[in-house]
């Protein structure tokens, strides 16, 4: 009898948690919708920055891309608009626009961007609130350094 009661309690707890998750589990989706302005782009622990002062930032970016692979897309001073139909409108400095498919994975802490050419980028969402979005480029564990993109809500 006690076993059945325990099973009922467990089942009801699981059901209650499920209902609460349906109510509140979508928060990252709600928070990310809107227009974000990229305010900084940092790459930590890169060797060649220390080796030569003569490299320009573009050369550093290119070398970073070689190091991290073709899936790494460099974003600079862009405006990202997350639309609720899973489309991300990326506005460049020169006025051009690109439309990218966006999805949240795991518990809403992984951002997957898929470009028209099917190349996908993955970012770990380190911070997301109404004013600030901090993304870390999601790299394999053997790649050193963190690429950090910081956005502020417009």
């Amino acid at each position: 009898m006690r076993g059945i009661v325990m099973n009922v309690i467990m089942g009801l707890t699981a059901l209650s948690l499920f209902l609460m998750v349906t109510q509140f589990g979508n928060q990252p989706m709600n928070d990310i919708i809107g227009e974000w302005k990229e305010v900084s782009w940092d790459y930590e622990k890169v060797d060649f920055l220390n080796q030569s002062d003569s490299l320009t930032i573009d050369e550093v970016m290119d070398q970073t891309k070689v190091q991290l692979g073709e899936n790494f897309v460099i974003h600079k001073s862009e405006v990202w608009e997350f639309i609720d139909d899973n489309t991300l409108k990326v506005g460049f400095e020169d006025g051009k626009e690109e439309f990218v498919d966006w999805k949240l994975k795991s518990k809403g802490d992984i951002l997957k961007l898929t470009h028209n050419d099917k190349i996908s980028e993955y970012y770990t969402i380190k911070e997301l609130n109404r004013d600030r979005l901090v993304l870390h480029f999601h790299v394999d564990l053997n790649a050193r350094g963190i690429v950090k993109l910081t956005f502020e809500k417009i």
Binding site: A14, L17, F18, M20, G25, K107
Partner: peptide, 17 residues
């Protein structure tokens, strides 16, 4: 981050269950 706490707790509970 209480919504995230809820989510992870739900996952842990499912494993426990």
């Amino acid at each position: 981050n209480w919504n995230q706490v809820l989510m992870v707790f739900f996952w842990l509970f499912m494993f426990f269950y």
